[in-house]
């Protein structure tokens, strides 16, 4: 069901944990709130789940005002960070809990618990206690419990944080598959930008109690609206320089032509590390600089190079690797790097 958050404010003493947040999540959409710890994303989640009453603003669920409704009346399924499985109840009892609270007939409870356990591939684990399961299995039980009663909204509060990388990746895909097949409106909270890029229909980046930017993952990555978003989402080179009409003067690179004219004065350009090239193709590029390799990090498919530019800042370059090819450059080597002007994004100044 559609979720609409309007001008939510929550203050703790002099600190505004939420400073007027607006958010629209469409029916069946998977929207991620991405932000560092302390950005207010958990407070926002609590206000939506009903564990926190905002000082101002409205929470609408399917058009119904639930701002002041207690959690039990919201029909919101939530997966907690540490899963919050009831340790004294079996897996089946945990999953049956929301149905029992809704006083569903016993036969229906049994059938739906079985169905949803099959959905998360835990059909033979119904009789176990949570502590007899692995972390990934517990996470799936928590998910089953959150969706078994057909919630109007699914909330996921950093549910993958405690899992190792491999398991996390397979569960991310599993959650996404489940969410799509049930067409569940989902709000996912994370501080992990990679996770956000993998899973979301749209991402809302939060900082200091406000949503900084909301949009498609690709848009946010390519055209961040603020310096914070550019920095937080992915790796970035933020090049400071001076704009004069259709070009900007950047230390190290010289004049960089801009797609759209900018007012004269200081300007910040975003250059993703993968847009910075190295080697033979550089000579054909209009924007070039010489620099010394300070550090190289091998990452498997690619290598990450940190370079100190002559008369310029330090920059990151990410170069693709092929198993047979020699490494692009050694530490201490002086190389030429370059980029194409259309790969540059002007970060709007706040």
């Amino acid at each position: 069901m559609q979720l609409s958050v309007q001008r939510i404010v929550r203050r703790f003493g002099p600190v505004a944990a939420l400073g007027g947040v607006d958010l629209e999540v469409a029916e069946g959409e998977f929207l991620t709130i991405l932000g560092p710890s302390g950005s207010g994303k958990t407070t926002l989640l609590k206000a939506i789940a009903g564990f926190e009453i905002p000082d101002e603003g409205t929470v609408l669920l399917g058009g119904e005002d639930v701002t002041l409704a207690p959690p039990r009346q919201r029909d919101v399924g939530m997966v907690f960070q540490n899963y919050a499985l009831f340790p004294h109840l079996t897996v089946a009892q945990n999953v049956a809990f929301p149905l029992e609270m809704r006083r569903r007939p016993r036969a229906e409870v049994a059938r739906r618990v079985e169905d949803v356990l099959r959905l998360v591939e835990l059909q033979s684990f119904g009789g176990r206690l949570p502590r007899q399961l692995s972390g990934g299995q517990q996470q799936r039980v928590a998910l089953a419990r959150a969706v078994v009663f057909g919630p109007r909204l699914l909330l996921l509060d950093e549910p993958f944080g405690a899992l190792d990388r491999k398991l996390r990746e397979s569960l991310q895909l599993e959650v996404r598959r489940l969410q799509r097949s049930l067409r569940l409106t989902t709000l996912f909270i994370t501080h992990d930008q990679e996770e956000a890029l993998i899973m979301s229909d749209r991402i809302a980046v939060m900082d200091k109690g406000r949503i900084q930017q909301i949009g498609l993952p690709g848009d946010l990555y390519a055209r961040p609206a603020t310096r914070f978003v550019a920095d937080f989402l992915g790796e970035s080179n933020l090049l400071e320089g001076t704009a004069s009409a259709a070009s900007a003067s950047i230390p190290g690179f010289g004049e960089v032509p801009l797609a759209a004219p900018q007012p004269a004065g200081p300007v910040t350009l975003l250059l993703r590390p993968e847009a910075l090239r190295l080697g033979g193709e550089v000579e054909a590029l209009p924007c070039r600089a010489r620099g010394t390799v300070v550090e190289t990090v091998f990452l498997g498919l690619s290598a990450k190079l940190r370079l100190r530019l002559q008369d310029g800042p330090e920059v990151l370059a990410r170069v693709p690797l092929r198993p047979s090819a020699p490494p692009p450059a050694a530490e201490g080597e002086v190389v030429t790097v370059g980029f194409s002007p259309e790969d540059v994004h002007v970060v709007p100044r706040a």
């Binding site: 564990f51 919050a84 340790p87 809990f97 609270m101």
Partner: peptide, 18 residues
């Protein structure tokens, strides 16, 4: 007791006393 447990119970539809 993890405070998330009674919270989870209420979120799943339980009145406080249940």
């Amino acid at each position: 007791i993890d405070p998330d447990l009674p919270r989870a119970a209420e979120g799943l539809g339980a009145p406080a006393w249940r």
